[in-house]
Nucleic acid binder design. Structure first.
Lengths: 334, 334
DNA sequence: CCTTTGTAAGAAAACCTTTTCAAAGCGATT
DNA sequence: AATCGCTTTGAAAAGGTTTTCTTACAAAGG
């Protein structure tokens, strides 16, 4: 049987109050007893029962993280950052992978509610009203990661997608490319789809290349879709010399397609990705890409949630992190 | 304030016992009252407090998962499998990423202990006595995943590493290769290192190629190390026409190195990986590899733990899952 | 020497649920 | 009419901790 505070008290020959005090306010108990208690704790390997504690504090000291796809390095970076921040802040972390399934997400919120997590980081794309209402009904505070909401006042952490996309495309233009295509996210079920499209368009128009604005195909997260989208794109626009991809996995799909067609990257076509996943540096050729600070974003999201939980407010509601262009081997001067 | 069972009782004008019964044994309360209670529950959005419940049941209905490296697709596959199994079995899942840090792992065990997880799946390489003793002291049941222990009697789920390595090398031999090198895991801090080495040696010796038994370099998990190890390997043995890698990430590192040296894969050198990560199918060239059923292994580990928790025993102590050779583009007839 | 102040530590209440035990109601059997 | 057995319900205990309230005692101040 797990030892309880009572067992410790008995062994140290003090009351349970004293044991509790040794754990929570050690200064308030006289040294001789404190030592006895500490010894008993050590000997019994006593660990306070978190159920009893939770009952009193009405807190679980656990945060929840909702991610859409754990098989995406983007989210694993976030997890590492958030977990490290949680350790620093004294929280445990409960990670749930929704596999982009709405019902699954909803049922994870129930699970979080039942387990009384103190707060949730929601890194699962769009904040649909269904989700929002459920979270509010359950009275669970939450912050958004890599997404935002203008409809509701929810703290969020993300990069400036429009500017990042602009920077990527501007880079291609500066390399001398004039026929630039894009593999994007569908706009309906994606938060970052529209702003990245906007950035693409802005860079083109600024350079007087507006006519390229339609050389776009869409894919849904996976390599295979991007491969297929690349096929469509190059079938319709064989003149392209550069492609802007809104995800590194898309860039890999495009490059694989071009490879199969015996089109050299970056010899004939430059490809730029987005995210700077760990894989971007392992692929052949190594990917030129826009780096997101995934690890830091995970940290910030946890810190922000903590801020919200402890102070009841948040310094910056919608926080932007810095992105960065990383030039590697998949792009070349035209 | 969160509504309690008392609020429901008051609203429905019954005792709290009745409310509790409605939730746990509905048939035992007469219909008229049951309906009143259900209505009150609905109106108040009542959800039983899991702390109070845990206090009584002494169970958290939560399992813990310890993994060494969340930025490795191998483990993300496992996570998916285990999470799905947990949903089916009615558990929540708490994932902790140790980053291969001993102290961190130890402190996660403390966290699991404090949170009173019902059991742990340990997918973190070697079961050092330190870990074992701590887990036993904390009285937390656990099972091993992708690792095992002959020293202790612990349930485990893994593949037959020796046979899998043998199959991989045999495949290369059957393709006509006679100069085969290997990039392995260091034997000191790895469970699968030695058996995969044994499999490599057995296949070579069986084919009368025993002299190749020393054409081996070691790396520690990461692409960059494998790249470096490949450099050493090919500097010492430029005659190699095939390389057996004990991880897909190693295979990518080797192929990148060969690419930089303008050595064609599979044209001049065949490379075979291990694991069949999602990336194996995205790399250029697509990797020939030994597939491990990561998803199923995650499932099985959770089921096994559940079996252990509920029945107090386990049908097969050390369970082996099937591996499979997947032939893609990184290997070719000599 | 008596009163006040302060410190250390125990007793007991509170947190919320489940479950055991007891009691009440009621029809059926002797 | 008394007893029995059954169903339904409420009261109360238990689970482990924190915290408030009290008490006991020692030191300081008048």
């Amino acid at each position: 049987m797990k030892p309880t505070i009572r067992d410790v008290a008995k062994m140290a020959d003090v009351s349970i109050s004293t044991v509790s005090r040794v754990m929570n306010a050690p200064e308030s108990v006289i040294e001789s007893k404190r030592i006895r208690v500490l010894e008993a704790i050590e000997k019994l390997q006593y660990q306070p029962n978190s159920f009893a504690r939770g009952l009193i504090y009405k807190k679980s000291f656990t945060l929840g993280l909702l991610i859409p796809d754990i098989e995406n390095f983007y989210y694993t970076g976030i997890i590492r950052g958030m977990q490290d921040a949680c350790i620093k802040l004294g929280y445990s972390l409960m990670i749930c992978n929704t596999d982009r399934d709405k019902n699954r997400l909803l049922s994870y919120i129930d699970a979080f509610h039942e387990k009384q997590v103190d707060g949730i980081v929601f890194a699962s794309d769009i904040m649909y009203p269904e989700y929002y209402e459920k979270l509010v009904r359950c009275r669970i505070p939450f912050v958004l990661l890599s997404t935002h909401s203008y409809e509701y006042e929810i703290p969020s952490v993300e990069i400036d997608d429009e500017q990042a996309a602009y920077d990527a495309v501007k880079f291609l233009i500066d390399l001398g490319h004039e026929d630039i295509g894009m593999i994007g996210f569908n706009h309906e079920n994606s938060i970052s789809g529209p702003p990245r499209y906007q950035g693409f368009i802005r860079a083109l128009e600024e350079a007087g290349l507006g006519r390229n604005g339609e050389k776009i195909r869409y894919a849904t997260h996976r390599f295979e879709h991007a491969y297929h989208a690349a096929h469509e794109l190059f079938t319709d626009y064989p003149e392209l010399t550069a492609v802007f991809c809104v995800a590194d996995e898309f860039a890999m799909g495009v490059i694989s397609y071009l490879k199969d067609r015996n089109i050299l990257v970056p010899g004939q076509v430059s490809v730029i990705g987005f995210d700077n996943l760990r894989m971007a540096n392992m692929f052949i050729p190594k990917l030129t890409t826009i780096a997101q600070p995934m690890y830091d974003m995970g940290c910030r999201a946890a810190e922000k949630l903590h801020e919200w939980l402890t102070t009841g407010t948040v310094e910056v509601l919608r926080e932007k992190m810095e992105h960065k262009l990383i030039v590697r081997e998949s792009s070349r001067q035209r």
